[in-house]
């Protein structure tokens, strides 16, 4: 029984480490597209952590929100921003 506790806590420790490192990298990534990808990774890592903490409900939400919707929204925002700066550059070239 103790062995099972130890395995479970080892899993939790590894997942916490994964989440912490990924979160730190996500906070330090300066460029939004790359950050969106790291945030997707953070969502996946959080999913693992929640599962080993025996919270599959939260893990499922995190999977939907953190790994899919939030990064997608950031990508869409960046794309819109890119599009307007492309237009802008085209205009400047025409002048």
């Amino acid at each position: 029984m103790n062995g099972s506790y130890a395995t479970s806590e080892y899993l939790i420790a590894v997942c916490v480490l994964l989440v912490t490192v990924t979160a730190t990298v996500a906070a330090l990534t300066p460029e939004p597209v790359r950050q969106a990808l790291v945030l997707a990774m953070l969502g996946t890592a959080l999913t693992l952590l929640f599962t080993v903490l025996q919270a599959p409900d939260v893990a499922l939400s995190q999977l939907g929100v953190g790994a899919a919707v939030t990064p997608l929204l950031i990508m869409l925002t960046v794309r819109r921003v890119r599009r307007s700066s492309t237009q802008q550059r085209d205009r400047e070239r025409q002048r």
């Binding site: 409900d57 499922l60 939400s61 939907g64 899919a68």
Partner: peptide, 11 residues
């Protein structure tokens, strides 16, 4: 089981 309106809705 795990899941519910929110999770399913997002999927």
């Amino acid at each position: 089981s795990p899941g519910g309106g929110f999770q399913g809705g997002v999927i």
